[in-house]
């Protein structure tokens, strides 16, 4: 069996993603459609939250992927810093816009859900605030990549920014536990004993979460392929200029 480091080779990565990307996109479309249609049309209203409970099928998967995207960027950044594999730096770059959109969806659906339930669109609650800071980190990360011309320097600096931002990704996940205050509830899904959510909601939620995860995979693979091609184009142009 081959090592995972084989895929640090752009040619091997392109070969793998050539079939994995469309497959994950197809599975993502199916899972998201199933999860959201099931959640929106076939689940009953909650006895306290009414029909707003249907927002959970968007809010929880997007929030989960907002944090997981940053975690993936952290791993890829560490691989770049330690082993200097270009594909990992490009994969981290490709993941950032996807993570930013996931964070934006989580913030927006949270605000729209919070208004009727909490009586406010926004509160400086630990989890909400750390999520907003995470979103700003995403924007800063994307801007830093675009601002630096030399790709290796950009990869170095964005990797360091990713390490710093990881603090807020962790806070976003555990803020409700660290500070037992604020409006946001603790974990809705947990392996700890005690009923938190009925299976009526859990099943479509798990399907939606799987769909968001697969969509993230498909988009990161597609984005990394684009970055590899752009890098090759830059290298060819540089070689042409050097010859001229």
């Amino acid at each position: 069996m081959g090592s995972i480091w084989e895929y640090a080779n752009p040619v091997k990565f392109m070969k793998l993603s050539d079939w994995l990307m469309p497959l994950s996109a197809l599975l993502a479309a199916g899972a998201i459609a199933t999860g959201l249609i099931w959640g929106f049309f076939l689940t009953p209203d909650d006895f306290r939250q009414g029909s707003t409970v249907k927002i959970i099928f968007l809010h929880v998967p997007s929030a989960l992927m907002a944090i997981n995207a940053w975690a993936m960027m952290l791993v890829a950044s560490l691989v770049w810093l330690i082993r200097r594999h270009h594909v990992s730096a490009l994969a981290a770059r490709a993941a950032a816009p996807v993570g930013a959109v996931m964070t934006l969806i989580a913030l927006f659906t949270g605000a729209v859900w919070g208004q009727p339930m909490w009586g406010t669109w926004w509160a400086w609650d630990p989890r909400l605030t750390s999520f907003l800071i995470l979103f700003l980190f995403y924007l800063g990360y994307i801007a830093l990549w675009s601002a630096i011309e030399d790709p290796d320097t950009a990869a170095d600096l964005t990797a360091v920014l990713c390490l710093v931002g990881s603090v807020f990704a962790v806070l976003s996940r555990y803020a409700a536990l660290f500070w037992n205050q604020g409006l946001h509830q603790g974990a809705s899904l947990s392996v700890a004993p005690g009923t938190r959510m009925d299976m009526t909601y859990k099943l479509p939620l798990y399907i939606s979460m799987t769909g968001f995860g697969l969509l993230f995979l498909a988009l990161v693979l597609a984005g990394t392929r684009t970055q590899i091609r752009a890098r090759r184009a830059r290298a060819l142009l540089a070689r042409e200029r050097a010859r001229a």
Partner: peptide
């Protein structure tokens, strides 16, 4: 969707 049709549809539409 009852009284919450607005927020639910807004959340789904924008997302």
């Amino acid at each position: 969707l009852g009284a919450y049709a607005g927020p639910v549809l807004l959340a789904y539409g924008v997302s």
